Amino acid sequence: MQPERGDVARSSDPFKLGTGRQRPWLIVNNETHPFDGEQYIAVAISTKAYDDSLALSADVWETGGALGHRTSPHGLYTLHEVRISSPGKAA
């Protein structure tokens, strides 16, 4: 299943070292992205609160959830399809 805008996907975390380098990411690009289906622009989801981060409350989740998590606009990243696992949906 290919992720779409608004999906939350797990992928490797370029900001961490060592084992357990997975992180949830919010997909923000759409089908007009030149590499849609192969690469996805995403923002990091974190438990840390930063001035510009947005809280993800329980009511934004269509399935699953991550209470206490926030999107982190400083954590913009390009995910490659082959590294994405466990896509979910945020409304």
Rank of each mutant, 00 (worst) to 15 (best):
D13S: 13
S11A: 15
S11V: 03
I45T: 05
P73Q: 14
P73H: 15
Y77H: 15
Y50D: 03
G88M: 11
S46F: 00
H33T: 01
L17Y: 02
H80P: 12
A44R: 07
P3V: 02
V60K: 07
L26R: 07
W61R: 06
P3I: 00
T71Y: 04
L79E: 05
Q2C: 03
S85A: 10
A90Q: 08
E31D: 11
T19V: 01
Q39I: 07
G37M: 04
S72F: 08
G65F: 06
R5V: 09
S85N: 08
G68E: 05
E38N: 13
L79R: 11
E62F: 10
R10T: 11
A49P: 00
I41S: 03
Y50M: 02
A66T: 00
Q22C: 04
T63H: 07
V43Q: 05
Y40S: 02
Y40T: 00
V28P: 01
Y40N: 06
D13Q: 04
G64P: 00
R5Q: 12
A90W: 11
L54T: 15
D59E: 12
T47A: 02
I27V: 09
W25G: 05
Y77G: 02
H74L: 08
R23A: 07
S86I: 11
D51T: 13
I45G: 01
R21Q: 08
D36Y: 15
D51N: 06
V43Y: 03
A90L: 14
V28R: 08
T47G: 07
Q39P: 00
A58S: 13
L26D: 01
S11L: 10
L76M: 15
I27N: 06
Y77P: 01
T19C: 06
P3R: 00
A91N: 11
V43T: 11
D52P: 00
A91Q: 10
A66C: 09
E31V: 05
S11W: 09
D7F: 13
A90F: 11
S86V: 14
S53C: 03
K89Y: 09
D59P: 11
H74S: 12
H33M: 03
S11D: 07
L26F: 05
F35E: 14
E38P: 03
Y50Q: 03
G37Y: 02
L79W: 05
D59R: 05
A42G: 03
D52H: 07
D59L: 01
A49W: 03
G64L: 14
N30P: 00
R5T: 10
V28C: 03
A49V: 14
E81I: 00
I45D: 01
Q39H: 05
A58L: 09
W25T: 14
H69I: 08
E38T: 02
Y50S: 05
A44P: 00
R70G: 04
T32D: 12
A42D: 04
R21I: 01
L67Y: 06
